[in-house]
Design a protein around this nucleic acid. Structure first.
Lengths: 206, 206
DNA sequence: GAGCAAACGGAACATCGTCCCGTTTGACAA
DNA sequence: TTGTCAAACGGGACGATGTTCCGTTTGCTC
């Protein structure tokens, strides 16, 4: 639907239809998204807006100007993080020692993203259709990226090749359920074990 | 841990071990539970404590004295409502025109209870074990009561007899998911239809 | 570089959770 | 029954957070 379309060529929509924002406004929006993503990871999606504004170095009103409700902010961060994950895939593959190392780092970023994703689910309880659209968009964008990382690692003989990207991402997602504010459950560690478990016995240490 | 133990033999702990509370304290606790249950139904489990205190006719500090955290209050209301549902079953059966009418009214009370139950799930995200214990307690207590209502209605020839209490309660529970603060989804109406759908064609109007 | 509208920052305000403290009240013994 | 005291109470104070307002700044355009 229009959601996925808007998401795909988002910037075109904005620079095309809208009367073009001022440069500082565009800069602040991006700064806010980065700040919010970082704060969400450490403090959850219910973190005080003051904290986010402070990290971004802007006033609280600026957040309201760009994102009228918290749901708007979370959705924007969600899209922002998906784009970041899409770009991070090839970059990590090119910049890491081995494909498996790249996969591990990408999954780590993916775990960060899941905080936002789960927060989004909590915020969008009432909007089943909207959430489904965002979920479909998330799958469309990230499954291929994860698939390419898996494929590269499998081709290099580092990991077993019978694991689909969808299956892996579901597994990671499930490991992270209910891990917020729970000191007795370290999802990230378990995810690390899962990724480590993908390795084939004869693979070299990275 | 102690939570699950308290869940199993809750009242015994209180009347047995504790040095017996003052009469006004016991009275206020009960009043608070009733008030909170009512407020939860209309405003959800996140309702301001002031509202609950006001309805109960007590000060806000009194809530903290009885229930240090909101989770404690929700858990206590949860137990309180379960006991109320257990007692309501036979009472409705005795006082209603037909078993089917009693079943309908009981399910209506059950829907009220689900607001608390779902709120409890949200609050106890981190305490998987504690929630499981409370969930098991809920099933232990209510499935037989609902079963007796179903049985009575089936024996009276009012409803089909191939519906288990567990299945019905699950269905009702699922109908009520995500219905909070959602103006486009009237769970109670759907539940009514479900209960109406139980009737056998030849059953007399109640 | 001058003017204007857009955008900004931070303080003011409103709401809610939490805690404290002076007062009231129920329980129990004399 | 009455006196005593700890338990319980009410409500206001306080801190944290969401939201809005307004004077100031900043980036576009001519």
């Amino acid at each position: 639907m229009s959601d996925s379309q808007a998401a795909r060529d988002g910037q075109d929509d904005r620079t095309q239809a809208a009367p073009r924002k001022r440069a500082d406004a565009r800069r602040n929006e991006k700064t806010l998204l980065d700040a919010a993503a970082a704060i969400f990871v450490t403090s959850g999606v219910e973190a005080p807006l003051r904290d986010i504004a402070a990290r971004a170095g802007v006033g609280t009103a600026t957040i309201y100007r760009h994102f009228p409700t918290r749901a708007d902010l979370i959705i924007a961060v969600y899209r922002h993080q998906i784009e970041a994950l899409v770009e991070a895939g090839p970059a990590l593959l090119a910049g890491s020692a081995t494909p498996h190392a790249a996969l591990g780092r990408w999954i780590d970023l993916f775990v960060d993203f899941l905080v936002t994703k789960h927060g989004l689910a909590a915020v969008l309880q009432s909007d089943e259709a909207g959430f489904d659209a965002l979920h479909a968009y998330f799958l469309d964008r990230l499954v291929p990226v994860c698939g390419r990382l898996l494929e590269a690692a499998a081709t290099a003989g580092e990991i077993r090749s019978d694991m689909s990207a969808l299956e892996l991402m579901r597994g990671v997602g499930n490991l992270c359920i209910g891990s917020e504010n729970n000191p007795h459950y370290d999802a990230r560690r378990l995810v690390e074990l899962l990724i480590a478990g993908l390795r084939l016995p004869h693979a070299q240490a990275e």
